[in-house]
Measured scan of single mutants.
Amino acid sequence: HYVEVNGKKIQATSAEEAEKIAKKFAKIYNATVLDLGNYYKVT
């Protein structure tokens, strides 16, 4: 599981952790979290 933010991949140990990381970055960048199955993308 990982999160992609601005083209950078951030490794996460679980889907739950990946979701938390994605939501945190989405809040910082006022962005949207896309759940793409095996990873989250912040756009």
Rank of each mutant, 00 (worst) to 15 (best):
A31E: 03
F25Y: 13
Y40V: 04
A18D: 00
S14H: 03
Q11S: 11
V42Y: 01
A15L: 14
A26W: 05
I21D: 00
A18M: 06
K9F: 13
K41C: 11
A31T: 10
V33I: 12
Y2K: 04
Q11M: 15
E17P: 00
Q11G: 10
A12S: 06
Y39A: 06
K20Y: 11
K27Q: 14
G7R: 03
N6M: 14
K24G: 09
F25S: 02
I28D: 09
I28M: 14
A12H: 02
K24P: 00
L34A: 07
A18W: 01
L34E: 12
E17S: 07
Q11I: 12
K23V: 10
A31P: 00
A31H: 07
T43E: 12
E17Y: 05
K8N: 08
T32C: 12
K8P: 00
E19H: 14
K23L: 13
F25N: 02
G7S: 04
I28G: 04
E19A: 13
L36E: 07
K24H: 15
T13A: 13
E19S: 10
K41Y: 09
L36W: 04
S14W: 06
A15W: 12
Y29H: 08
Q11W: 15
K8L: 13
Q11N: 12
V3Y: 03
K20A: 13
K9Y: 11
N30F: 07
K41V: 15
Y29K: 06
N38T: 14
E16S: 12
K23G: 06
G7H: 05
I21E: 02
A15T: 07
E4D: 07
L36K: 08
E4V: 12
V3P: 01
G37V: 07
G37E: 06
A18I: 03
G7I: 01
V5Q: 01
V42E: 03
N30P: 01
V42F: 01
K23M: 12
T13S: 14
I28Q: 11
Y29T: 05
K20C: 12
E19V: 08
N6D: 08
N38H: 14
T13F: 11
A12Y: 07
N30R: 08
A31Q: 06
V3K: 02
E4Q: 07
A15S: 10
N6C: 15
G37S: 05
L36I: 04
K41I: 15
K24V: 12
V3R: 00
N6A: 09
A22V: 04
G7K: 04
I21Y: 05
V5K: 01
A22H: 01
L36M: 15
A26V: 07
A31D: 02
E17H: 13
T32A: 09
A18R: 00
N38G: 15
G37D: 06
Y40D: 03
N30S: 08
A31M: 14
V42R: 00
Y29P: 07
H1A: 08
N38Y: 13
N30M: 07
E19T: 06
K20T: 10
I10T: 01
K8A: 09
T32N: 09
Y2G: 02
K20I: 10
K20W: 11
E16V: 11
Y39P: 00
S14D: 08
L36V: 06
T13D: 13
Y2M: 05
N38R: 08
K23R: 13
D35I: 14
Y39E: 04
Q11E: 11
N30E: 06
N38D: 12
V33D: 00
G7F: 04
I10G: 01
A15Y: 08
D35T: 08
L36Q: 07
T13Q: 13
V33W: 08
E4N: 04
Y40W: 14
H1Y: 15
T43N: 09
A15I: 13
T32I: 14
K41G: 03
A18C: 08
A12Q: 02
L34M: 10
Q11T: 12
I10P: 01
L36G: 05
A31I: 05
L34Q: 11
V33Y: 11
A22E: 01
V5R: 00
Y40Q: 02
E4H: 05
N38L: 09
D35E: 09
A22L: 04
L36H: 07
K20G: 07
N6Q: 07
N6W: 15
T43P: 04
K24R: 13
G7Y: 04
T13Y: 10
I10A: 01
A31R: 02
S14Q: 02
V42L: 07
K41N: 04
K23Y: 14
K27V: 12
K20D: 09
T43W: 11
T32L: 11
K8H: 14
K27D: 12
N38F: 11
L36D: 04
K8Y: 14
I21C: 08
E17T: 06
A26D: 03
Y40P: 03
E16F: 10
F25Q: 04
E4R: 03
K24T: 11
I10V: 08
V3S: 00
A22T: 02
E17G: 04
Y39G: 10
K27T: 12
K27G: 09
V33N: 00
E16H: 10
Y39R: 03
Y2Q: 02
Y2I: 07
V33L: 07
F25G: 01
S14F: 03
Q11R: 11
V33P: 02
Y2A: 03
Y29M: 12
K41S: 09
A15N: 09
K23Q: 13
N38C: 11
L34I: 14
Y40H: 05
E4S: 05
K20S: 11
K9M: 12
I10K: 01
N30V: 04
K9L: 13
N6H: 10
V3Q: 00
N38P: 07
K8G: 06
E4W: 09
G7W: 04
Q11K: 12
K9S: 05
G7P: 00
Y2T: 05
T32D: 09
T32P: 06
A12C: 12
Y2R: 01
V5I: 14
S14K: 02
L34W: 08
V3A: 05
V5E: 00
L36R: 06
V5T: 02
V42K: 02
K23W: 14
K23D: 09
I21F: 05
